[in-house]
Design a protein around this nucleic acid. Structure first.
Lengths: 358, 358
DNA sequence: CGCTGCAATGTAATGGATTACATGAAAGCA
DNA sequence: TGCTTTCATGTAATCCATTACATTGCAGCG
């Protein structure tokens, strides 16, 4: 807790006195009903379905509610109605800028449909994932959108109120929305091939994640299409971090591998790769071209700016939430795997290979 | 929703049939009690306070619970006990990497004390802040840690279960934890002065935020201490974004202001500043030194790496959560403003001014 | 006028757990 | 043995809002 020269001050002693102006107690329907001289049912109706109480009563009740400051107890309501209108979005790492725009898409749709979104950071830990899933089991939330390639277990009947975004799971009962990673990786590698590169390294992500497998496959298929032999030694894998990108390049260079381009399975590793290259006095893109994946916000701001495969982040989020709402409204709708397409964004980190390297 | 060539496939039709293996219905204490041949009270006790039921019954009940797959309804429990053990952390922007480590600190302490943390992104919007605050009013969460310089209103009696982290509000009833921004900014500017800089620009944040005012004051006081006149024209303000940093530099340069160093109120603006400088062919740190504030993760990875003022992010989070727990346990504890200290991290973006500029 | 139907409101059951209080049995003690 | 504790368990009240069903009053109709 860094004992480092921290100080504590207590602000104005007058504070307690000021509290005298108590901002209204916690109220219940009963109290409101009593104050308004109606039954609890009428109060509840005035708030939930205003159109079925007479205008006069409704106004009166609203007045009382405002005057006394009443907020219905959501626990009681949710208990009774068996729905919370709350959904939890699980993300492996809030520090990963990729997710923020996905979240925004989720929230847009949620908001339109009267849902509230809370975020849970799992740090890739199954235990933490499960602990959020338990909140659904305990009826504290209606559903979950998870962005990891795993489905937590929720001991309830029928369809799990879970949708998988960005990643996807093999489990056919779970709806997922993600991009066509094979195709997207293919487009990126096609582009490098088109520029004239023949020795293209690949820095993959954790092999446990299906999307990483797909991206690697896209890379391999593209080489195959171009009849360029894929050298296994040019493929390394990391854990999506900047440091992993650095290590990958270090490893390639120290093994004396020759390459004129690197395709990384995400932008952070691409950023690491660029750093490692310039640390070795290799210039991007003059000596080596670099392509990332995701198009995180910082990709625009590296020097040179990073060419990358942009995922439709907002659409991924929107679609995930739409599917979840659909599922919550009708658990009978069959699960779907929805596949969106990604787009190559060419910036400054790619160029034709130098003649010398051809 | 990007109609772009997206496809939908329905996985295995066999899926419905497989569902036959229904994973247990939703259970209630009553059912468990019946199945275990004890009263609901005993079931509840066996789960909540195992030590007060006989070992035999306890084991038996746990068996039944496991076999039938029972998760207590948290809504019912929370309704009865009037506590949720859930707290909401409000952050203006999940894309801002500064917050992620603060969150981690919050979660560590929360976890140790049996609390669960959910995140709410407010995008700086008062409406959204309020909507999360309403969840507390509606008893869906016990408290809030907010990282914006505002306190949402919660119409309840007595102390608001709100703690302010990173930012701070004037309201003396609200506990806050933050760094001594005046001193921290002072240290950064002292360092630039020590290197020999005399023309130091300042890129501030939104003036509505007290911490920005403090950082600017720290800057001014440091100049004053060094008897260097502060030129108002060298102070510009932005909105904490990378783009704002770029614009700030553009504005200084286009107005023909001379400066050999820039101190930015956060790292993202500093990154923007570095970009804008190199776009104008000014080299960092040879022509202009740049210092940021926060020490976000990317600060280490810019070229050159960014010198910055590191906030004790983890400690800020831990302390905020500790204060909130303290407050939840005893609403009578007086509010405190806890001030931690920050530390200057010198990296590659700072150097003595070139002789020519002295 | 008497009956039907509708609108507005009230009464009370309900959701699922926790827990104060009551009860019964066993243990401790003189 | 008889009385007090203590332990384990059961009964029923409680948390607070929603809502099915009951009731009331009035308009409309033949």
């Amino acid at each position: 807790m860094s004992g480092d020269g921290s100080k504590t001050k207590r602000p104005g002693k007058g504070s307690v006195a000021k509290l005298a102006k108590q901002p209204a107690r916690v109220r219940t329907v009963k109290e409101i009903a009593a104050a308004a001289n109606v039954s609890v049912a009428t109060v509840s109706r005035a708030l939930q379905r205003p159109e079925i109480v007479s205008e006069k009563t409704r106004k009166h009740i609203h007045d009382v509610v405002r005057r006394l400051g009443y907020t219905p107890n959501a626990l009681a309501r949710n208990l009774r109605t068996a729905r919370t209108r709350l959904i939890i979005a699980l993300l492996p790492d809030i520090a990963n800028p990729f997710f923020s725009e996905v979240i925004r898409g989720i929230e847009q749709v949620a908001h339109e449909s009267g849902y509230c979104v809370l975020l849970g950071e799992t740090q890739g830990s199954l235990v933490r994932e499960q602990s959020y899933a338990d909140m659904v089991a305990a009826r504290q939330a209606d559903g979950i959108i998870t962005m990891s390639p795993r489905v937590p277990s929720i001991p309830i009947q029928g369809r799990l109120p879970v949708v998988n975004a960005c990643e996807y799971v093999k489990d056919a009962h779970i709806s997922s929305v993600y991009v066509d990673n094979v195709a997207a990786a293919g487009v990126a590698v096609d582009y490098l091939l088109m520029l004239g590169h023949r020795q293209i390294a690949f820095v993959g992500g954790p092999p446990a994640s299906p999307i990483c497998v797909d991206r690697e496959q896209g890379y391999r298929l593209a080489l195959q299409r171009a009849k360029v032999p894929a050298k296994p030694a040019l493929t390394v894998s990391g854990d999506f971090s900047i440091e992993a990108g650095e290590r990958a390049i270090e490893s390639l260079l120290s093994r004396g591998q020759a390459f004129t381009a690197v395709f990384c399975a995400n932008d952070e590793m691409a950023i690491g790769a660029m750093r490692a290259l310039s640390a070795r006095n290799l210039r991007v893109p003059d000596d080596v071209s670099v392509v990332g994946f995701d198009d995180i916000r910082f990709a625009r701001y590296t020097t040179p700016a990073l060419s990358t495969v942009a995922q439709p982040k907002n659409a991924l989020g929107r679609e995930a939430m739409s599917m979840l709402i659909e599922l919550l409204n009708d658990p009978e709708v069959p699960p779907r795997k929805r596949i969106l397409s990604a787009e190559l964004i060419v910036r400054g980190s790619t160029a034709p290979p130098r003649a010398a390297n051809k």
